[in-house]
Structures are given as C-alpha cells and as structure tokens.
Amino acid sequence: MPNWVEVGVRTLTAVVILYAMTKILGKRQVTQLSLFEYITGITIGNITASISLDLDSSWYLGLISITVWVCVSLGIAFLQMKSKTMRDFIDGKATVLIKDGKVMEDNLKKERLTSDELMQQLRKKRVFRVADVEFAIMEPNGEINVLLTRENQPLTPRHLGIKVGPEQEPQSVIMDGQILDEPLATLGLNRQWLNTELEKLGVALENVYLGQVDSYGQLFVDLYDDQIKVPVPQEKAALFATLKKCEGDLMLFGLTTKSKKAKDMYEQCSKQMEQIIDELTPVLHR
C-alpha cells in the first residue's frame, strides 16, 4: 500500500476513534476543562496524530494507549462524582479574590494573577469598580464569578414585589422557509394557524428564514431580506389597552349614574378590573 494511502486510511480511522472516545468522555471534555482533563485532551490528541503519521509503529498500540487514557479519565470522573475529597484533590478548590470590596492580595499571588488580569476579568462581567464587588471567586476551572453589592445589583420584578409569568422556551416553527410540524404540535397549533399569522404580518412562507412562537402564542419571524421590517405582534398591547378602556368605562358609568345601587356596582366592577389588570400587567408587558 502506498504511504499516502496508508496515511489517509490511518487519519480517517483516527478521526473516528477520537470522536468515539470524546463522546464516551462526555461534554465536559469540550467545555471548561480541569487540569487533568486538559492534560488528557492534549495527550489523546498527540497519540491520535502519531497513529496517523508514524508509519513505522503499529496502529493498534496507539489504540491501546488511547483506551487506557480514556479508562483512567472515566475512573477519575467516577471518583470525582462519588467523593468531595477527590474533587478537591484533582480539580482544586475555589479561591476568593475579592471580599467586601477588598482585593485579597495573597490569594492573587497564590493564583499567579496580576491586578491587571483581575480588572480585565471584572470588566468582562461589566464591573469597573472593585468597590462595587461584594464577592469575587476564581473557580477551579479558572473562571471568575462576581457577586455585586446589593445596591449595585440589577433591579428585578422581585425587588418591586411584582409576580412575573413563567417564560417557556420559544419553539422554532419555521426554518429555511419550511414549516416544522413537531414544534407546532408541541404548542397545540397547526399549519392553518401559522398561515393565518403569516397573512397578518404580510409575509410569504418562502421568504421566512426563521420563525419562532413564544409561550404566549405570538409569532416572530426573521426574513431572508434584512431590509424588510416586519411589524411586531401587538395582540398583548391591544388586549392591555382594551382592559384599561373597560376599567375607564366602568369608572365613568359609576360617576355619571344617579342610582346609588348602580354606582356601587360600577365601582366594585372597576376595582375588580383594576385588580385583574395588575395581575396581568407582568404578562402583557413581556
């Protein structure tokens, strides 16, 4: 067999083997790596390259070596899942870098991290003042996580005592101009509903690059032609305006009627409508 053919066959075989072993090791191998996972990835990559190009060595020896590395990695991963002590020994512990707005210089030196590198990592978290940080910690994988002081944390509906409706994952119902029936069925919708919504937007199906439906049944589309602006669905805004109008009408009827019984009834209905609007506002304003 010519050398170039043998190299090609070995390379294809190595790719298949490497992909299979990576699938066995799991998704952590392609995300943030621990120290051992980093070493494992480099070593398996080098062994795979050697299998592809070293024609003087037997390819099955490289396969044995990769198998041993994968088995050791799986064994260590099993120990990490079962033992906190093993996790701390293999991955290391998290290190506090900032506490109560003060930099822990000794911990910076321990992690060989300069003040410039610390500030760079803080800026990635949109933090520009150390005094705004309540707590910053370096995780075992090298990532720095930051907790801002309470007064610098973003305002949320919970801070205002507002209950917000749950948000479910939007479903993609159109891709590349083709309707996806399974996501539509998941939402309890059909093609007829989708075609009706497209007609409301004045959009043809074949011109839609991506179409998504949120948990409230609103369709949002992205067209192939980026110059065309698609109107944003206004159903929730229209419903909110209708409810406010009903509340206003009830108040007006209560003010204009001369019957005390009718006045009391309209005022009671107006208060009930106001309560309904308050409960629905977080949903209608999403």
Results as ranks from 00 to 15, higher is better:
residue 218 Q to H: 09
residue 175 M to S: 11
residue 82 K to L: 15
residue 108 L to T: 04
residue 222 D to K: 02
residue 278 D to Y: 13
residue 199 E to M: 09
residue 42 I to W: 11
residue 73 S to K: 06
residue 18 L to I: 13
residue 11 T to A: 04
residue 57 S to N: 12
residue 125 K to W: 04
residue 146 V to N: 02
residue 219 L to D: 06
residue 276 I to A: 01
residue 68 V to E: 01
residue 110 K to Y: 09
residue 161 G to W: 15
residue 152 N to Q: 14
residue 38 Y to N: 06
residue 153 Q to I: 07
residue 95 T to R: 04
residue 213 V to I: 14
residue 42 I to N: 11
residue 285 H to R: 12
residue 109 K to P: 08
residue 183 P to L: 13
residue 43 T to N: 01
residue 264 D to I: 14
residue 286 R to F: 15
residue 182 E to R: 05
residue 148 L to V: 03
residue 142 G to L: 09
residue 143 E to N: 07
residue 189 L to Q: 08
residue 33 L to C: 03
residue 215 S to D: 11
residue 233 P to Q: 08
residue 229 K to M: 13
residue 133 V to W: 00
residue 239 L to Q: 08
residue 194 L to T: 08
residue 273 M to I: 03
residue 102 K to F: 12
residue 237 A to H: 05
residue 154 P to S: 00
residue 112 R to W: 10
residue 283 V to I: 12
residue 138 M to K: 08
residue 279 E to A: 03
residue 143 E to F: 08
residue 86 M to G: 03
residue 133 V to Q: 03
residue 59 W to M: 11
residue 246 C to V: 15
residue 233 P to A: 02
residue 33 L to Y: 00
residue 205 L to V: 14
residue 286 R to H: 15
residue 60 Y to H: 02
residue 94 A to H: 10
residue 176 D to R: 08
residue 274 E to A: 02
residue 131 A to Q: 11
residue 151 E to Q: 14
residue 72 V to L: 14
residue 74 L to C: 03
residue 279 E to G: 14
residue 168 Q to P: 07
residue 10 R to T: 01
residue 69 W to E: 00
residue 267 E to F: 14
residue 41 G to C: 15
residue 160 L to W: 09
residue 180 L to T: 00
residue 157 P to N: 11
residue 234 Q to N: 08
residue 215 S to M: 02
residue 3 N to H: 05
residue 182 E to F: 11
residue 29 Q to C: 07
residue 5 V to I: 15
residue 56 D to E: 12
residue 121 Q to W: 11
residue 225 D to Q: 06
residue 133 V to S: 02
residue 209 Y to H: 07
residue 199 E to S: 11
residue 207 N to T: 08
residue 64 I to P: 02
residue 285 H to P: 00
residue 257 T to W: 04
residue 188 G to R: 00
residue 45 G to C: 08
residue 219 L to Q: 06
residue 151 E to C: 09
residue 83 S to D: 03
residue 50 S to G: 09
residue 206 E to S: 13
residue 154 P to N: 03
residue 34 S to W: 02
residue 149 T to W: 06
residue 107 N to R: 06
residue 149 T to G: 07
residue 94 A to L: 12
residue 234 Q to L: 07
residue 103 V to Y: 03
residue 98 I to N: 01
residue 41 G to N: 14
residue 267 E to M: 14
residue 166 P to M: 01
residue 112 R to D: 04
residue 137 I to K: 04
residue 199 E to R: 12
residue 179 I to V: 02
residue 99 K to H: 10
residue 183 P to W: 09
residue 139 E to Q: 04
residue 145 N to R: 06
residue 243 L to F: 09
residue 10 R to L: 01
residue 229 K to D: 04
